[in-house]
Amino acid sequence: MPEQRVTVSITEGVADVRLARPEKRNALDPAMFAGLVRTGEELAHEPGLRAVVLSGEGPDFCAGLDFGSFQAMRDGQRLSATADLAPTDGPAQASGQRAAHVWTALPVPMIAAVTGNALGGGLQIALGADIRIVAPDAVLAVLEIRWGLIPDMTGTQVLVELVGRERAKELTFTGRRLSGTEAVELGLASRVDPDPRTAALALAREIAGVNPDAVRAAKRLLESSGRIPLRDQLAAEQKEIGALIGSPNQREAVAAGFEKRAPVFG
Rank of each mutant, 00 (worst) to 15 (best):
L203G: 01
I207A: 00
V158S: 00
A92I: 03
T181E: 01
K219F: 02
T174P: 08
A31L: 09
D213S: 07
E42P: 01
D152A: 14
A86S: 06
A51K: 01
D29E: 05
T198H: 05
G68S: 15
P2N: 14
D16F: 15
K239H: 05
D232W: 12
A81K: 15
A199P: 15
R216G: 01
L188N: 06
F33W: 02
S55R: 10
G266C: 10
E41Q: 07
P107D: 04
P109K: 07
A253T: 05
A72T: 14
E23K: 05
K239L: 12
I131W: 09
G180V: 02
R21T: 12
I111V: 09
T156N: 01
E206P: 13
E46N: 02
A202D: 02
P248Q: 13
D89C: 14
G68Q: 11
V114S: 04
L43A: 15
G175T: 10
D152Y: 09
L234G: 00
D213A: 06
R132V: 08
A208N: 14
L19F: 04
A34Q: 12
L159I: 10
T104R: 12
R261D: 03
A94G: 10
H45A: 10
T88P: 09
P22V: 01
G180S: 10
I10P: 14
A243F: 04
D232L: 12
P248D: 11
A20V: 01
A138D: 07
R18W: 13
V184R: 00
Q77P: 00
A81L: 08
A218P: 05
A105F: 04
G35H: 03
R261N: 05
A118D: 03
T104A: 07
A34L: 09
S224Q: 11
L49T: 07
A100R: 09
M1G: 15
V160N: 13
G246K: 15
T39C: 12
D152R: 08
W147A: 01
E23T: 04
G187A: 13
